[in-house]
Design a protein around this nucleic acid. Structure first.
Lengths: 339, 339
DNA sequence: AATATTTACGCAAACGATGTAGTAATTTTA
DNA sequence: TAAAATTACTACATCGTTTGCGTAAATATT
């Protein structure tokens, strides 16, 4: 009934606890015959070591934490997929924590992770993360953090990102090539790393094409979708509206579609739209949505691989390293000039 | 640097370890003045109890596991959202395990969970789960399982489902009312509970309307999307094709859309489509997709609440209980008769 | 005032696994 | 053949908390 432990196993085998323990860990101190006997009995009794006992003793949890803003989101769920895959391969367990873009919640979650519950943390900070004081102690406490996508520059560690600046330029350039004269950028917050890069790419490309970068064309959206809807609606109401929208995240493009439906704006003809997105159904939308697609699964996979590279060596300190993966541009109808 | 522990805290406070421990747990054995002193110092030193030590001692992990087929899926990610919310409220941690619809992987994961790493398990079995031998021991080992959606009838515990039978009838009836004479049902596997119920609803409704239930109209799809694509393509090729499709899961509807695009079949006019789905963009597809939408977030929330109801009382045995939540039918263009 | 009770704390034994140090018995080496 | 080395095991301390029990002092009861 209750799980069998080393003591019981040892008694049955008429061996000491340490012998059994060592036999199971294939120590050279134990004879082959004994090892076999122990292994067989352990299997028969369905013995599995108590993770708390070994965790306590060895100061290893065999667990990593993933801290992300959301999971009901194509991007993050693909990342988690990649992480979980690598974790399973390394016999690690994955704890999930959702911040819901709430800085305070993020701080609370990190507080929970301070005590070696996990061997490492993979995270993407919230859009509202203003400072890194809640993150800076982890490395020296022996808990490495690897950031992906929404990184924290100030912390010295590995960071997995995509070529957001280039992608921002490419997306903007694509809209310009399709005759957009007045492109709005829908941002998410303002403080986070990726937004700054995507926006910089957008601004740079405008500049390169001698187009004016009007501050009011950069819309700071937030976590409240109703408010975002109103912001986009306001943007697209009246006669002084943009003819192109570059949405920095998927949900803002979806909102744009919804607003256009309400306002009867013809996407593709009256308004070109492109966005960062991992939406599976992008090509089935009406019109199909042009996207910059991040290699989400690989981002997760890479972040986990980097983490395990250090955990395997028992190195808790990860030096600064910037790994940049490439996003791909998928041109579809929403951004195309009708011919 | 290293996290402070009880021993160090006790030494600084000039108290015994047990006094400090009891003070922190607000034991009545400790005087108020001492309590305050301990609490203050603990806060100052940023003390947090070692989860492995207390886990070992108290045989409580403060962790639940969520075992699901996928996470890159709107349904499951919403469920996880609901679960995580309740877990955070109860100061619990959430481990995620993905089976990728692989029965062997599911067995392996369950093997990992046998040793009280978690206090409870919330799960939806794979489409290929043939038997429950890997699940049946958990309850008596003191690890309760709560099933949601893809339940395991044979295990006595709480099960959260939706009204799949009724929904299957409603969806079918809706297609019939919209003039479908020949409706195909796209199933996922054949063994799992929800598929049987959805299919039963479909068959019952056909029967009620004196329509023939042709066995070849029930398509058994699987985990391989390329193969699913071919199955649907075959179904929709040639002249003897159905005029309605009832897809039992979201991804099969998406595949149907893709096939129709390739074969130039006009959904809504030539073929009516409806499916179970939590797709956020259902209304933005072309044509907009009619769905039966499960209350995914609430399913997760409910499953977690039931689990904690028992965990709180230290009851590891959960009696049989069927909680049925209602799905909602969202009629959109894909299933509508054009007027 | 003698006894009973309560208060406030400390001691020490768990929890289960690990790993160092120790020890007989056997084998190798000089 | 005596010393050294190896083999195959066991004993025991340890990881950090929790908790039952013990106990001295303070307080309450008769």
């Amino acid at each position: 009934m209750a799980a069998v432990n080393l003591k019981q196993l040892a008694k049955i085998l008429n061996l000491s606890i340490s012998t059994v323990s060592k036999a199971l860990r294939d120590s050279h101190e134990i004879g082959d015959a004994t090892k076999e006997r122990v292994l067989a009995k352990a299997k028969e009794m369905d013995y599995t070591p108590n993770p708390f006992a070994s965790g306590l003793r060895r100061n290893k949890s065999k667990t990593i934490a993933v801290v992300v803003p959301e999971v009901a989101n194509n991007y993050f769920s693909l990342v988690i997929n990649g992480i979980e895959r690598i974790a399973q391969e390394n016999d690690y367990h994955v704890l999930i924590y959702l911040t819901h873009e709430d800085f305070e919640k993020e701080k609370g979650i990190m507080k929970h992770l301070e005590n070696k519950r996990v061997d490492g943390i993979l995270m993407s900070v919230t859009m509202n993360t203003k400072n890194q004081s809640h993150l800076s102690d982890f490395q020296q406490k022996g808990i490495p953090i690897v950031f992906f996508d929404r990184i924290c520059h100030e912390i010295e560690t590995a960071k997995i990102t995509t070529d957001d600046y280039i992608s921002g330029m490419n997306a903007t350039n694509h809209l310009i090539e399709n005759n957009c004269k007045d492109i709005a950028f829908l941002s998410l917050g303002d403080d986070i790393s990726i937004m700054q890069k995507r926006k910089s790419g957008y601004l740079e490309e405008l500049h390169k094409n001698n187009m004016e970068a009007k501050p009011e064309r950069v819309i700071k959206c937030g976590n409240d979708d109703e408010m975002n809807y109103q912001l986009v609606k306001k943007l697209l109401t009246g006669k002084n509206k943009p003819d192109g929208i570059f949405a920095s995240v998927e949900k803002l493009a979806i909102i744009t579609y919804q607003v256009c439906r309400e306002l009867n704006i013809n996407i593709s003809k009256d308004l070109k739209v492109i966005c960062f997105s991992n939406l599976e159904t992008a090509s089935l939308l009406s019109p199909s949505l042009s996207t910059i697609t991040q290699p989400a699964y690989n981002i997760g996979k890479t972040a986990a691989e980097v983490m395990f590279k250090y955990l395997d060596k028992n190195k808790t300190y990860i030096p600064n390293e910037n790994i940049v993966l490439q996003s791909t541009l998928h041109i579809r109808e929403s951004s195309q000039q009708i011919v």
